[in-house]
Design a protein around this nucleic acid. Structure first.
Length: 280
DNA sequence: AATTATGTTGCGGT
DNA sequence: AACCGCAACATAAT
């Protein structure tokens, strides 16, 4: 899934394209992917698009559409059946649209069409009231790039946890927006062993860790996210961070700092990539 | 055929 | 309570 940088990239583009648009029709091709009343949504105006954690919030003049892309969700916007921004067709998205992975199609008054593709069908679009949205979002800790996340805050939260630092960073109740890619790369950049118990990470290490996490996150935002597998930007093109990965997905390749082999092992059922020389 | 996959939730056991 | 491993969701690629 898209992690924070990928969702942020999508949201920025959607905001500039969709604010002021009016929904003319919502077509649900897979019931599990959409919860709401499609008839009610007809005629609703999009007043804002924003991101919180890894969620996309499309605010309407009444109600909201809250979207989670989970592992394989894509939001691709087509203008009059031409891909936004032009360019020639490529392998940058999964087939023509709608594709066999298209789960929901949102038609807009201007003629633009928003496709929600989701190969694995873990993602969803939900029509929700303001109150329901607040309730849903309240369970998340602050975003990793929120100014409220200071080294002091993070240190305090880590102190309370005896599990491995890698696993605690993936806990969205502590900080939101981080996923496997950026946690692996952030821990590498900070020189911290992913297996180190969270409560044993010193304040100066936490300071370094926070800087490292923000560095990789902001770099990835600048590059339009990491297209490892199915992630695509709103125009269907790939991001660029996949070409700058430090350790994620680089098992057996040389460490960018010391040249030792990057290793992989499982934590919480998921792959952790790291350099045992550089991360202590 | 088995393993892997950017996420999250929930269950049972310790 | 905190923590852990594992399964579940559903699909495709290697």
């Amino acid at each position: 899934m898209p992690e924070l940088p990928e969702v942020e990239t999508i949201v920025k583009r959607l905001k500039s394209e969709l604010v002021g648009e009016v929904i003319t029709r919502v077509e649900v091709k897979r019931a599990k992917s959409f919860q709401g009343n499609t008839k009610q949504l007809k005629g609703r105006r999009i007043v804002d698009v924003s991101r919180r954690a890894k969620l996309i919030l499309i605010k309407l003049n009444q109600d909201n559409l809250l979207i989670h892309l989970k592992m394989t969700g894509q939001l691709i916007l087509i203008n009059d059946h031409k891909r936004l921004g032009g360019g020639h067709p490529s392998a940058d998205w999964i087939g023509g649209l709608p594709s066999s992975h298209t789960r929901v199609i949102i038609y807009l008054m201007s003629g633009q069409v928003l496709y929600f593709n989701d190969q694995r069908v873990f993602g969803w679009i939900r029509q929700m009231s303001d109150q329901a949205v607040d309730q849903e979002l309240a369970q998340y800790g602050p975003d990793i790039i929120n100014v409220r996340v200071t080294a002091g805050y993070l240190y305090q939260r880590l102190q309370a946890r005896s599990s491995a630092i890698k696993l605690v960073l993936l806990d969205s109740r502590v900080v939101a927006g981080l996923g496997n890619i950026y946690v692996c790369d952030g821990l590498f950049l900070a020189g911290i062993n992913p297996q180190k118990k969270a409560k044993t990470v010193s304040l100066s290490q936490v300071t370094k860790l926070l800087t490292a996490l923000k560095t990789v996150i902001n770099r990835a935002i600048k590059l339009g996210g990491a297209s490892i597998n199915t992630y695509r930007q709103v125009d269907g093109l790939s991001g660029g961070y996949q070409d700058e990965l430090l350790v994620y997905g680089r098992e057996d390749m040389p460490c960018p700092q010391c040249g030792a082999k990057i290793e992989r092992f499982k934590q919480g059922g998921r792959s952790t990539f790291w350099c045992r020389q550089c991360q202590r």
